[in-house]
Amino acid sequence: MKKLLPFVIVLFLFACAKKETPIEKSISEYVKTNFKDPASYERISIEVLDTVTVAKKIKVYESKGISHEQFDNEPKDKFLYYTVSHKYRANNSFGAKEVYSDIVSMDKDFKITGSHSVDK
């Protein structure tokens, strides 16, 4: 019985561990390789804001009066990218914790293709 208890505890811990989604995994990998202090990173929230297709991109271009001829021969339902809201805490360059909000773009394989900070 004593030998079984540690096994049951470990099994319980693995069962309770939340599995990362592909988007969360991509952001975690980005943090590990690109942040100055990745150990200070604390995720607050990750939320998919939009799935951008050719039709949505054309609509945006038209509203801004920009030519959209590069999309004219593309299927309107063709996927272009995801936009994801990413809010987190991390140490700044002085070592103090700050809250950050970013908008991240990801391709169909959840590879990060761009990111920009959202003003507070």
Rank of each mutant, 00 (worst) to 15 (best):
Asp50Val: 03
Lys108Pro: 12
Leu4Cys: 01
Lys18His: 12
Met1Arg: 12
Ala55Gly: 06
Pro75Asn: 14
Leu4Gln: 12
Lys111His: 13
Val52Ala: 02
Ser93Gln: 04
Val52Cys: 00
Phe14Ile: 11
Glu20Ser: 14
Tyr81Ser: 05
Lys57Gln: 15
His86Asn: 11
Asp119Tyr: 07
Gly114Lys: 11
Val104Pro: 00
Gly114Glu: 06
Ser45Leu: 11
Val118Ile: 15
Val60Gly: 01
Met1Gln: 13
Arg89Glu: 12
Ser67Gly: 14
Ile58Tyr: 03
Thr51Met: 08
Glu62Gln: 14
Val10Leu: 15
Leu80Arg: 10
Phe7Ala: 12
Ala96Gln: 09
Ile27Phe: 02
Leu4Thr: 13
Val104Glu: 00
Val48Asn: 03
Ile112Cys: 13
Phe12Asn: 02
Lys32Tyr: 03
Tyr81Cys: 04
Val104Phe: 02
Arg89His: 06
Glu47Ser: 12
Thr53Asn: 06
Ser101Ala: 13
Val84Trp: 01
Thr113Lys: 08
Leu4Tyr: 06
Glu29Ala: 12
Leu49Asn: 11
Glu24Val: 04
Lys25Thr: 10
Ser85Val: 01
Ile44Tyr: 04
Asp107Cys: 07
Lys120Val: 11
Phe71Leu: 03
Lys3His: 08
Val99Arg: 05
Lys56Ser: 15
Glu98Thr: 10
Val52Gln: 11
Thr21Asp: 09
Glu42Ala: 09
Arg89Ser: 06
Glu42Gly: 04
Pro75Gly: 02
Thr113Gln: 08
Ser26Asn: 07
Ala96Cys: 02
Glu20His: 09
